[in-house]
Design a protein around this nucleic acid. Structure first.
Lengths: 417, 417
DNA sequence: GGCTTTTTTTCGAGCCTCGAAAAAATAGTG
DNA sequence: CACTATTTTTTCGAGGCTCGAAAAAAAGCC
């Protein structure tokens, strides 16, 4: 559909796009030769040759002959192209419950520095929370050991709702504060372009890079933690809502007028499957009981008890599975079934959740082929979020470097040609 | 995200795309001048001039000076460009419950011929149903009065589930038959490219053309008829599932284990809001009662009774509204609120549905700004579906004409230049 | 060392878009 | 009615980009 915007393609866009294509091919493939890139992009060898010569000359790519130490093949050996780690660096900031972590990553994707810090996010006043974030970033940026290319981009990830333009945190479970424009704050503070990303979206991005076989075109990442979040990739593209970012899967309605959710409403999926909900149910508390924070250790202990013997604990996980199953069923009714990754502390208890989940999903329209739907689990969400932020920032740089690339080439001159 | 596919842009793609851009600009704007097109596409005047000269020479566009009869402006008057009605024609086939209709539409979008037919879709055997469709299309194609350019494309619309590739009807409420590859059948029968489209998707496409102000980037078309269907446009693009086409909004779960749905499952939104569900409820029948077909006239009478006095009829509409509200709420939790168009016979009873719908939606995460969500109604779905099919077919032609356009130009030669 | 094979670079041809200038077509003006 | 101002459209040369073919480079094989 060419319905929406009809922006013509200029002649110079061509080079810009094809440069981006080459960079992205290198980032994905590791150390592809020029011939390989020509094959994957469909461009001619001459074009790849010209573009990669430019990119090498500009310091974005490097030639690394060590593709295969023992080149058994005949013919001129392939020269692997790699991202030049020093071409740029990016910085990730992940703010989660009582925890703040920052990492500096080089252009090739390697972590070159990191710092972590505990803080009391639930009670910190606005300026202190912002101050803590700014301070930790400043420490990393001013580190004299850090001798890489300047940091070209900051990606900050947070649990909660962010706006579509990736500028602000609108709401988060980790703090009572709302509407903090973190991206703008970091950008004006450090003069580095920044974005504010949703944690579950970043999980999805990370999965796409970690296992492109399984997580390619369509898949779902679900965070099973205190709250229930979702990152959704459709047709290879991260799906974000039209206004805010991130589908609020956890707040789809499971039972109208049902259990009390942390969001204040009733009957949300989260009100049955969030950590606090499982805890509440396992402790035989009322469905109206105010949600309480439950530590990861407590949740692991709860899961252990549920595995030990049948009882309220096991029943609580069963009910969580049911809620997730019906929620997924409704989701699958809309988007058709896709692979699912369960992430977070309760993903470690997925064995307790899965039977009821599958049973529920089988009762829904989306669950027609429920047995073929596959689930994967990853108990630790933080590394995923950070990876996702890093890749998000790096691909942003990839796409920003080629546009100024035209200017950069003009500046550097062509003493090679 | 350049993640998925990295197909480089060839040099000739450029022209192809820009040609498509010009055609689409003309189709949308009506009779734009070259200057207007240059402005909307962002391409230079020279380029637009060159491309439109080609398109006129190929008979795709025509110059129509009658932009404004009284040109009060100074300067050389603008020459309006219009689609040449004779450049091509498309054919639409809409198959609905007991009804089959076909229309021939010229390249400018005007209906030039049509034919309709009653048939008994619910009991027809497979070959008869297919035969009826083929026969009616053949009659239209062989009509001697039809003196237009040859039919370049067929778009067939049907209620039900179609596959992603728009080739086959997988399942439909209008017939017990399944998996009929209508697109392939028509294509091999007539040698004309054909597609199989979902009715609600076509409704959405039609709305996008009818009222581009209101229905542009994000909106939802919901069919309130025997069944409940949905067409969803996100970021200007029709959203189709990853496997089948069309979000099965009607089969999102409203109440786990609840009322019996036509699909055989329980608790779907449709089991509360479909015509049969409203009827069942109004007649005080059990929620387990087998769904029955209810005629449009009966539904209108039912609505009239509900308006007259409070009673089971009114309560039935209230419950329908509730189901739709919670369903929309869950949907809005995923995609954020967007304008909604209610289409179909029960849309005429939206006054009875709306209060409960708004009440329900206000209890959901997506309904945060529920008062700002606006609903529009359109009781007659068939014209919308046909319009959608027509536009779908025409835009396909738009995008196919430019690719052969390169060859066509070579054939026709350039006696103008 | 010469031959084969494979990868990479070079080079000219062919298009495409763009900007500037020219041409075209009209309204106003004395 | 001639002339000017104004706006649209076309023309034309310049600059870029990609492509295919051929050449060059860099190995292994005998």
């Amino acid at each position: 559909m060419f319905q929406t915007m009809s922006v013509g393609i200029r002649h110079d866009d061509l080079r810009r796009r094809n440069r981006a294509m080459v960079i992205s091919a290198v980032r994905r493939a590791g150390q592809p030769s020029r011939t390989e890139i020509a094959a994957t992009t469909g461009l001619s060898h001459s074009t790849i040759s010209a573009i990669s010569a430019d990119l090498i000359q500009e310091g974005i790519l490097t030639e690394s002959k060590a593709t295969e130490p023992t080149a058994l093949k005949r013919g001129r050996p392939q020269i692997g192209l790699a991202l030049n780690p020093e071409a740029a660096a990016v910085l990730t900031v992940v703010l989660s419950l009582n925890f703040l972590s920052v990492a500096v990553i080089d252009y090739a994707g390697q972590v070159v520095a990191e710092e972590q810090q505990r803080l009391d996010t639930l009670v910190m006043p606005r300026d202190e929370l912002i101050g803590a974030c700014v301070a930790i970033v400043r420490r990393r940026l001013q580190d004299p050991d850090l001798d890489l290319g300047s940091v070209a981009r900051i990606a900050m990830g947070i649990q909660g709702i962010t706006d579509t333009h990736a500028r602000a945190m609108l709401w988060s479970p980790i703090t009572p504060l709302t509407d903090i424009p973190f991206a703008d704050i970091l950008e004006t503070e450090f003069g580095i372009p920044a974005t504010m990303e949703n944690d579950c979206n970043m999980m999805a991005v990370a999965l796409q890079w970690r296992d492109p076989e399984r997580y390619r075109d369509d898949f779902i990442a679900i965070l099973l933690s205190h709250g229930i979040g979702m990152g959704l990739v459709l047709k290879g593209t991260l799906f974000t809502g039209t206004h805010s970012s991130g589908g609020e899967f956890g707040h789809m309605i499971h039972r109208p007028g049902g259990a009390l959710c942390r969001c204040g409403r009733r009957g949300c999926v989260e009100a049955y499957a969030g950590n606090y909900a499982i805890w509440r149910s396992a402790m035989n508390m009322s469905e109206d009981a105010e949600p309480v924070d439950v530590g990861d250790a407590d949740m692991r202990a709860l899961a252990a008890r549920a595995r030990e013997k049948d009882g309220p604990e096991r029943e609580a996980y069963r009910r969580a599975g049911e809620a997730l199953g019906f929620g997924l069923g409704s989701l699958f009714a809309l988007i058709d079934p896709a692979p699912v990754a369960m992430v977070g502390v309760s993903a470690a208890a997925f064995d307790l959740i899965e039977p009821a989940l599958r049973e529920a999903i089988a009762q829904t329209a989306g669950g027609q082929h429920s047995t073929s739907i596959s689930f994967d689990t990853e108990p630790n969400e933080l590394p995923l979020i950070r990876e996702g932020c890093a890749m998000r920032a790096l691909t942003f740089v990839d796409q920003e470097i080629f546009a100024p690339g035209v200017q950069a080439r003009a500046i550097s001159g062509k003493h090679v040609a």
